[in-house]
């Protein structure tokens, strides 16, 4: 599975993408695995209310299932327009 990071989440983690093998059933379980990796991941995922998540390029919630997902992206609230 590809895990992508954008904006300050990318900066805090230090790279734009991880390719990982995971058994995580939900986004929340994936976040728990990422937090456990290193301090910079724990810092990036410290406050989930400041983050949004997309699974296979569709916005969703942190309790969304990951069955069959190929790409998960984490980023701050969007500022388009």
């Amino acid at each position: 599975m590809d895990v992508l990071y954008f904006a300050w989440v990318r900066e805090r983690i230090g790279h734009p993408k991880d390719r990982i093998e995971t058994e995580a059933a939900t986004v929340n379980e994936l976040v728990a695995e990422l937090r456990a990796r290193e301090d910079r991941y724990a810092a990036a995922f410290a406050d989930l209310s400041a983050l949004r998540v997309a699974v296979d390029q569709e916005l969703t919630d942190f309790d969304a299932p990951l069955a069959g997902a190929r790409e998960v992206a984490f980023f701050p609230p969007m500022t388009g327009g």
């Binding site: 954008f6 904006a7 916005l59 980023f75 701050p76 609230p77 969007m78 500022t79 388009g80 327009g81």
Partner: peptide, 26 residues
């Protein structure tokens, strides 16, 4: 369209002022 693409299209703005940089908060 404007209301939705402000908050639901995946863009993020970063401002540069002199040596300061900051991500624009939603």
């Amino acid at each position: 369209l404007m209301d939705y693409l402000k908050s639901r299209a995946p863009f993020w703005k970063k401002e540069f002022s002199g040596t300061d940089t900051q991500w624009v908060a939603a």
